[in-house]
Design a protein around this nucleic acid. Structure first.
Lengths: 233, 233
DNA sequence: ATGAGCAATATTTTCGAAAATAGTTATGGG
DNA sequence: CCCATAACTATTTTCGAAAATATTGCTCAT
């Protein structure tokens, strides 16, 4: 738990509650707040400088996103990480992401192509600039997220997109967890480029196969390298 | 808006907030609270007898379920109903429900078969007893919900099941809306029986086709009969 | 008449205190 | 010594007042 902040004002969202949710989400995904860590209101109040009520609203949000679990009358804690959960998550992600990608490829217009190409370009630049441990930087993570977001951004399905986004966060937490133990990050640059080419080339079947195995092998690697950190059940 | 209640105590959930959320959800799904109706705190406070904060938490939940929309700093309102939303919802439901059903059929054990058979039996009994307008009764709706829930209950995928449940609520709101105008409810008894038989018979492909067209034709009927009530965009 | 600027009102958003509940330690009887 | 029970502490949950923000209505100059 970071202990410095004492009183806080909005810096991101419209309402303070959504702002707190945003920051809390980030701390959980980056594992600054560790799995199973209990989230006590007093401590959070100190750390985020918001009142009980506002924190409660933020936590309620994160519960629906699966990053926090509530034990009624006994408080909140950071959601545990388990192999079952990782499998469940991976399955759901593949199902939804494949569908969204296929429809994006069908419907995507010029603007979509530009978003895909430019976000991949940005990602590649970051990787060139710091070939050592780029995957750890917040900058790379943001660019990585944006590339995958761009791919599915033309699907025209608000409902599934919202679900997709929260699943992406949950998955990123697992990736960050495995990064602690993994010797050297897998090189995903080639996969990303192939994905972009298949998408822009309107080769839906190929692109869907690529995204499926991209998600699956990432998950397999997490299970392989982070299994020591992941509780049994 | 029902205006009678003045002060309220828990009757369903663990915490008052989840209780309020449950009741609000029900009023929205049954269209007692109409689409686009603005949800003012003073009025809700009168109607549910809870404080600002508690209501806010409940509303936050319903926003993530897509039954309420928040315009930051300008309050909450019941989510609008549109043909685009109905299409989006229907697509998402088919994608997820088909996947869950297929896996339930693969994994389902004896207890699952019993749940499917008995919930269909209960549904059929309700339909026999009151063949007139059974679909309108709360009893039928609950049994109908339980049957469909039973079908997918062996999938072993908490994440997708949670999404499925909130999509079911959103869809039920559309069904209730169309029931206002529809002359006579479509007879779904046969479809439900066929669905049960395909599932229990472990005929996955057939069952998935059936659920797909069940969801799709229900949606088509809603669009047909309720289009007058559904705003253009 | 019309529209800009300002005051008054309505509504949402945030706060910290108070009530309710769970967890823990102390106490007494068997 | 051990278990049940009571008192106490820690923590969550709920409340209504206060601050922040948006909306409405009014005045006045053009």
């Amino acid at each position: 738990m970071t202990t410095t902040a004492l009183k806080a004002r909005k810096e991101f969202g419209k309402t303070l509650a959504s702002d707190i949710a945003h920051r809390l989400r980030n701390e959980i995904v980056t594992c600054q707040l560790k799995p199973n860590e209990s989230l006590k209101f007093d401590a959070l109040r100190l750390s985020f400088g918001a009142s009980f009520t506002t924190l409660r609203e933020a936590l309620t949000l994160l519960v629906t996103e699966g990053l926090v679990v509530a034990e009624e009358q006994r408080g909140y804690k950071v959601a545990p990480v388990t192999l079952e959960d990782l499998d469940d998550l991976t399955h759901a992600r593949i199902l939804i992401e494949v569908d969204l990608l296929r429809r994006s490829i069908e419907k995507g217009d010029d603007e979509w192509e530009i978003r895909v190409i430019s976000s991949l370009h940005r990602l590649a630049r970051i990787e060139e600039r710091a070939p050592e441990d780029y995957a750890g930087s917040a900058e790379w993570k943001a660019a990585h997220r944006q590339f995958h977001e761009a791919l599915v951004s033309a699907s025209g399905s608000p409902t599934l997109l919202a679900v997709r986004n929260s699943l992406f966060d949950r998955a990123e937490r697992y990736r960050n967890l495995s990064a602690i133990l993994r010797p050297r990050p897998r090189d995903k640059a080639g996969e990303h480029r192939a994905l972009m080419q298949a998408a822009i080339g309107r080769n839906a079947n190929q692109a869907c196969d690529l995204i499926r195995s991209h998600i699956q092998t990432t998950s397999d690697n997490v299970a392989k390298y982070a299994s020591g950190l992941i509780s049994a059940g």
